[in-house]
């Protein structure tokens, strides 16, 4: 049995859905970040699978940019978490209701 890119795409869809479910369910902001990273990795798997299937390097370049944006996102997001948690320890995502209408 040969591993085609369809296998990679199915794996990527499963990983994305797990990350998405975790993002919706978990309330610890750090775990929510990890779930976002899972979703980004699912997209990376898709990019590399298509890059291999279409015999084109452009998909791998896109993975490179996804990596950079993920790093920047983690830096900004974690500094936000630290800045908020200094004032209010034991924070969950449900407690951030300052913008509630």
């Amino acid at each position: 049995m040969e591993v085609t890119e369809t296998w990679y795409l199915v794996l990527s869809a499963l990983l994305f859905s797990i990350g998405f479910f975790g993002l919706l369910v978990r309330r610890n902001p750090l775990v929510m970040f990890m779930c976002i990273e899972l979703m980004l990795n699912a997209v990376n798997i898709t990019f590399v699978a298509f890059s291999t299937a279409l015999d084109d390097i452009a998909g791998r370049t896109a993975v490179f940019f996804v990596l950079v944006v993920a790093a920047a996102e983690v830096v900004v997001g974690l500094s936000l978490v630290v800045a908020i948690m200094r004032r209010r320890p034991a924070l969950t995502a449900d407690d951030l209701t300052a913008l509630k209408g």
């Binding site: 990679y8 794996l11 750090l30 590399v48 291999t52 791998r60 993975v63 490179f64 990596l67 983690v74």
Partner: peptide, 26 residues
């Protein structure tokens, strides 16, 4: 999986940046 598809550099960067830097930061 990246190595299995021949994307060696991306696999390297994946380990260094994701499994290294980002997880250590978290």
């Amino acid at each position: 999986l990246f190595v299995a598809q021949g994307a060696h550099f991306l696999a390297f960067v994946q380990v260094v940046v994701y499994a290294g830097a980002i997880v250590v930061l978290i």
